[in-house]
Every structure is written in C-alpha cells, then in structure tokens.
C-alpha cells in the first residue's frame, strides 16, 4: 500500500468535517466538526513528515493540537455564555447580523 492513501483519508475526513459545519445547527456539533477538520489536517501533516523524513510536520501537528485545545476552551466558553443569554445553542438563532 502506498502511504499516500493516508492523504486521501485526510482529505475525505476534512471534507466530511466541512460539510458537517455547513449542515449542523447545534453549535457544539459544529465545533466538533471543526475539530474533525483539524484532526484531518494533523493526519496529513504526520503523513508528510513521514514522506519527507523529517520531524517538522509532527511539530506543526503538535502545535495544532495545542492551539486547538486553546480554541476549544474559548469556543466552548463562548457557547456556554451564548446559551446562558439566549437559551439556545443553535447557530441559526444568533442571526442578528442581517439587515
């Protein structure tokens, strides 16, 4: 098997995650889909690291994880505070930006 298949898998997971962001309304699920996309990217990085024989790709994946952790913390806090004030976790309910 050619390890390039990992890349195809990463692409597939990324696309599934993106579509999930588009079709789900629950903010938490949307957030999970974002995490899925990040993980797909990480897989691609790790595969590239193996492909090129150096560890920089893994470093980037590592940083991605750290940043994702920070993002999850803040994002979930935002979701919680939005839920508190609006009693809803639906992204469609927060549509005050329209005219």
């Amino acid at each position: 098997m050619n390890p390039v298949n990992y890349l195809y898998l990463a692409a597939l997971l990324f696309t599934i995650g993106a579509v999930g962001v588009l079709i789900r309304r629950n903010a938490i699920v949307v957030f999970m889909c974002v995490e899925l996309m990040l993980n797909a990217c990480n897989l691609a990085f790790v595969t590239f690291s193996r492909m090129h024989g150096n560890l920089d790709g893994q470093i980037i994946a590592f940083f991605t994880m750290v940043v994702a952790a920070a993002e999850v913390v803040v994002g979930l806090a935002i979701i919680v505070s939005v839920f508190r004030s609006r009693h809803s976790a639906s992204v469609d309910d927060a549509s005050l930006m329209k005219l």
Partner: peptide, 14 residues
C-alpha cells in the same frame, strides 16, 4: 445573500 445565518456565510467561504 446577507441573511445573517453564519452557515450561509460558511458555504460561501467553502
């Protein structure tokens, strides 16, 4: 197009 739904904007970005 500016319907205020963040998902619509996400579609256009995507």
């Amino acid at each position: 197009l500016q319907n205020g739904y963040v998902r619509s904007y996400a579609v256009s970005m995507f």
